[in-house]
Design a protein around this nucleic acid. Structure first.
Lengths: 240, 240
DNA sequence: ATAAGATATATGTATCTTGCATATTAGTAT
DNA sequence: ATACTAATATGCAAGATACATATATCTTAT
């Protein structure tokens, strides 16, 4: 921008400024399906609807810091893979005032997912149903066992759909998938996570070979225990 | 966010709000290399440095509309491929005040690039030099024939690097590459654009087959004219 | 006219990747 | 022991890709 335009924003009272928030898609895999953690709105607008946890960005707080703070304050999670997703800026996305929201994707291991539910009982885990295949895109729906199909507040259904799309797109060319797994995991667990996110079943030997060839997997020599069949070896994620 | 937190932002005077801008990476291909259009800052801070065109987001303006407006007002371009890139929110990215900037990537055909230079003589075309290969990422540098190496204002070098990274990543799984070409083009022109963006040379027969197989190309039956050699057929982009 | 030169277009082949079927291994349960 | 289950390993066909080479079509020079 040039200086002339800058002056429009320089005087804090001369022009109205939007509020800026972060909204978090807390995403994990439960029962072989992608799941998200939601909070019920107890005020208007969208009272009684379910919403993504979010919060205002402080004037001296980076976007990443705001996302990390919301993750801590609203979900009790100290550490998770956090990445900026997309910024939603429709004028009427909040009926009260102009709010621009920077959406973040938080990937949770099953342990972190359950720990968040323990720490914050207001959180509702809901399964994400993706009615399109591949990276076609489109709306997704959210269902919880007790409450049935949920209608999300604001444009949060769009945010959630964007999150699923992003995750599907990045899954096999990047290492984000490991953020959904514990430190030690079997190849079957890894494949289950990929199948849950992609919504398809994958060929086992091909999946194994492909992932092993990427150099992301370090065999530990340890094996899972307590199985009624041959135990699988435990692997650890390592950057190549 | 819940209602308690919302009240922090509801009263416009209770808490300071950041300003929100859009910054545009106006990207094209010139002389076989990626190029960007820049504006010189005539005021502090970063006086005399080169910057990406940008502007404040109006209180009743969507982010996409703000980006389209800046494209029109600062580059005189009515139509271009515009996509949101990333939102930059470091606290000190502007020394005067807190400004969060939503960066957009605008892809220009060579015609649009030249038309912008004609319409807005203040714009400087500069070549982007990418010192890393593939999608490794990292800083990029900017050079203009007359001015030599340029140092960009603010965090605009980061924004530019993000743009290059995004474009490289999307180039061969999406159809964005066609946004850099005129309506009718030869396969050689298409390959030249890909090579410029990727920074590598590609195998000609393999490239042809791969793109033809994607179903994005419609042969027109027309051929380029005035060549000192066999004329190439002209193709048109079509969604499959 | 004819040949030379340049580049488009087409094709053939080796190599690499991927999908699928099948065999082998290591554990528990009966 | 034998059956059962799932992990692990291997073999092979099908597909994709890189590279080399051949053919086609235009202009320019002689």
């Amino acid at each position: 921008m040039d200086e002339t335009d800058f002056l429009r924003g320089y005087d804090p009272n001369a022009f109205q400024r939007p509020s800026v928030t972060v909204d978090l898609v807390l995403l994990g895999v439960r029962n072989g399906k992608p799941a998200v953690l939601l909070l019920k709105r107890d005020q208007q607008p969208y009272q009684g609807r379910w919403a993504l946890p979010g919060g205002f960005v402080g004037i001296d707080e980076t976007l990443d810091a705001a996302a990390a703070r919301v993750l801590r304050e609203k979900a009790g999670i100290g550490h998770a893979h956090l990445e900026q997703l997309y910024t939603f800026g429709a004028v009427d996305r909040d009926p009260r005032m102009r709010i621009i929201s920077v959406a973040y994707l938080a990937l949770l291991t099953e342990t972190a997912f359950d720990a968040a539910l323990q720490a914050m009982p207001a959180l509702l885990p809901a399964a994400i149903q993706v009615p399109w295949s591949g990276e076609a895109g489109g709306p997704v729906s959210v269902v919880s066992p007790e409450n049935g199909a949920l209608t999300l507040a604001f444009d949060h259904a769009d945010i959630l759909a964007t999150a699923v799309l992003r995750l599907r797109g990045k899954l096999d060319y990047s290492d984000v998938g490991f953020a959904l797994l514990p430190e030690l995991f079997t190849l079957r667990q890894l494949q289950d996570v990929h199948e849950a996110i992609l919504g398809t079943s994958l060929n086992k030997p091909a999946f194994r070979r492909r992932l092993l060839d990427k150099g992301w997997l370090a065999a530990t020599g340890a094996y899972e225990a307590g199985t009624a069949y041959r135990p699988a070896e435990l692997y650890r994620f390592q950057r190549p």
